[in-house]
Design a protein around this nucleic acid. Structure first.
Lengths: 155, 155
DNA sequence: TGCGCATCCATGCAGATGCATCTACCTCTG
DNA sequence: CAGAGGTAGATGCATCTGCATGGATGCGCA
């Protein structure tokens, strides 16, 4: 099986460009005195759901490892942005719910975040390019080849 | 200034997809008993240039922070894959040169690496899509908006 | 020549991450 | 109900990263 030139180029640029853009957006957030991107993402997930989320749900939604989620919640909790609640129907589990402080912080972060995205991504692409980019990237997420077995063709 | 829907979607998918693909490729390398991606990248850079590279060159080429480069070279050196050489015309500087062991390792890693790229990226896109993706991502690297001032329009 | 300042690289320390493992609880089966 | 096996989540330890700073050398200018 041959790996195409185009795929190799796309890989190289994907890694570089995404890293650079991500770092730039992170830097803008930090410069404004805000916590890292992953905090925002977690708060956003949690803000969507009234009852809170189970850690394993957060883990799936954010593509984080289990221990990463556990410790991220630790930090968010320590900062007063979320709280852990006992899960009523599963003694092993818990719900993680956003607090008002968490909602406030997320809301304050959004303008800075949006501006950073615009500056580091939006401003460099036309509308059509952004659309195309999103569409192609969506295909990469399909049929997870790394985690669920059944990645290559079955023989 | 409004941030377009398409740009926001592209951002979200860029972060997710690139993270997922990168993690999957890393995992394949690790599963084959190889060191992380960044080692490969560094060895590749160093393998291109006979005389070796100054750390600050490696730093620029790989978009790494200065201390990150310093410590990456430490690890590579400890593993016998590179060696530091005194710089003949700058007493502060040095050259980092790949060793034969480094070249060998890089060569052994390549088939696994290429297969991983094909599996996690190439196989999911058509040739045309990969080409388009690469072209669009290339535009993101232009006119660095995060690091050199002069990102937004001058007022 | 000597002094101020910039550049190159290293490093101490704190915080974050990866890995393996642990505890506690659930569920299924006989 | 007992016991096996699976799932939810936490955590000790080693490694890695970010940040600030330090030491050493080069360079420009009086």
């Amino acid at each position: 099986m041959h790996t195409s030139e185009a795929a190799l180029t796309a890989w190289a640029r994907l890694v570089r460009a995404s890293g650079a853009v991500r770092d730039a957006v992170e830097a803008d957030l930090k410069a404004a005195g805000f916590p890292p991107l992953v905090w925002y993402d977690a708060l956003l997930e949690l803000d969507r759901v009234e009852r809170g989320l189970r850690p394993f749900e957060l883990e799936r939604n954010m593509l984080l490892p289990q221990y990463g989620t556990s410790r991220l919640v630790d930090r968010l909790e320590k900062a007063g942005l979320v709280e852990r609640r006992q899960c009523p129907f599963d003694g092993r589990g818990q719900y993680v719910a956003i607090t008002q402080a968490g909602r406030d912080l997320r809301r304050r972060m959004w303008p800075v975040y949006a501006a950073a995205i615009e500056r580091h991504l939006g401003a460099k692409l036309t509308e059509a390019e952004a659309k195309t980019l999103g569409d192609i990237l969506a295909k990469l997420a399909l049929a997870p080849s790394g985690c669920c077995g059944e990645g290559a063709t079955r023989d």
